[in-house]
Amino acid sequence: MVLSKVSTVVRKVASKVLDLEQTGLNEQYKMIKEASRNSKFELEVEELSQLIKLLREKHAVDSIVVAYNNGSLLISSNGSDLKEAITGTAMLSYIRSEIPKSESVFIKKSKGWYMLYPFSKKVYIVHAASNLHNVELKAIADDLESFLKKHSD
């Protein structure tokens, strides 16, 4: 014990005198490393219900509901959202009837954003605190469509 204490003191003095760099990750580095690790999402799951929850986390949104164009629900990150599916598809259908070339719909709520993104004969209904860009909505759709394609083959 005395020897270990002596060795610690000698090491500290030596690092001061010789101006040795501190090796190893400090707190900042650890925080960055952890954030980097937490940003990885493994999307190779078996169930669609698992995937939708992972997509919600991956894309940092409040909820994702996917409906078919006729209003029937495919999947929701909140479990069951029949009303959301019907409302979203109806709203998109109306807007497209008035503005035929509508590619997506963004509605600012008092808290957050409500977004409708049609893709591959479905409607992606996304709630988030801040509005996503079309490319981000497309990325959500791509992730889900890849899963559907893989599991339909």
């Binding site: 900042q28 960055i32 990885k40 999402f41 981000e136 990325a139 791509d142």
Partner: peptide, 19 residues
């Protein structure tokens, strides 16, 4: 430097989200 590395991490995450 840490601010640059922290910022590039965010870009990395964004790029990962876009696959």
């Amino acid at each position: 430097d840490p601010p640059s590395i922290a910022d590039v991490l965010k870009t990395k995450i964004v790029a990962q989200r876009l696959n």
